[in-house]
């Protein structure tokens, strides 16, 4: 959904053909190391947007060829874009793979929750190191956008590390609590509702 809407937005900025859209997207996000999309994904998205009446063809680039069809956004496309802007973008941090590992390491034989925490911490620090190195290569005078993007990732990693530290500090306490079990349900069929 975000790639589709980003393509709408790039076309609302100015008409472009598929390959330009691919390159414009990657440039916007600071390169394929940050967000890698395939040209084929761009073309298929453009087809779907065209079928939905959100974009239309606006001529063919001078140097011709089927890949060089230029698209522009329609009024319906602009309305869709506006609606996207009007919604907050939230990610669900409660669906966390590490949390599952942690809970299960507390109950399975040979589970070593402390080692698990250290392994996770090491991974987060390696990521933080890589982003810090990437950030130091970016020119703040001309590439502020990438700095903002990298800072967002860096700040999330810092928060993850803080949380891990808290988990480690409370590990003994957690270990003494049984992991949550499903609530007891009555056996057999659910009773008929007699009050209707």
């Amino acid at each position: 959904m975000s790639v589709r809407n980003a393509i709408l937005g790039l076309l609302a900025h100015r008409p472009r053909h598929g390959y330009e859209l691919h390159d414009a997207f990657e440039a916007m996000v600071g390169g394929e190391q940050n967000w890698d999309i395939k040209p084929a994904q761009v073309y298929s998205t453009l087809n779907r947007l065209e079928q939905s009446g959100l974009v239309v063809e606006d001529g063919v680039a001078q140097d011709g060829g089927p890949e060089k069809r230029i698209y522009m956004v329609t009024d319906a496309g602009l309305a869709e874009l506006r609606q996207w802007f009007n919604e907050p973008s939230l990610s669900d941090r409660r669906r966390d793979e590490f949390f599952l590992k942690l809970m299960l390491s507390l109950v399975v034989a040979d589970g070593d929750p402390r080692r698990l925490i250290y392994t996770q911490r090491a991974g987060l620090y390696r990521e933080l190191h890589a982003l810090t190195a990437q950030r130091s290569q970016v020119n703040p005078a001309s590439q502020l956008a990438y700095i903002l993007l990298l800072d967002q990732a860096i700040m999330h990693l810092e928060a993850d590390l803080r949380w891990l530290e808290m988990v480690e500090a409370r590990l003994d306490e957690i270990s003494r609590q049984p992991i949550p079990e499903p609530a007891e349900r009555p056996r057999g069929r659910p009773p008929m509702d007699g009050n209707r």
């Binding site: 250290y118 911490r121 090491a122 620090y125 390696r126 933080l128 190191h129 982003l131 810090t132 860096i154 990693l157 810092e158 590390l161 803080r162």
Partner: peptide
Amino acid sequence: PRIAAHANRIVFLKDGTIVDDTRL
């Protein structure tokens, strides 16, 4: 953490012992 992330390696101490030693 932000400062440590500049290093190439982190040694983690706890209660006077090394509990982890990570190459970044």
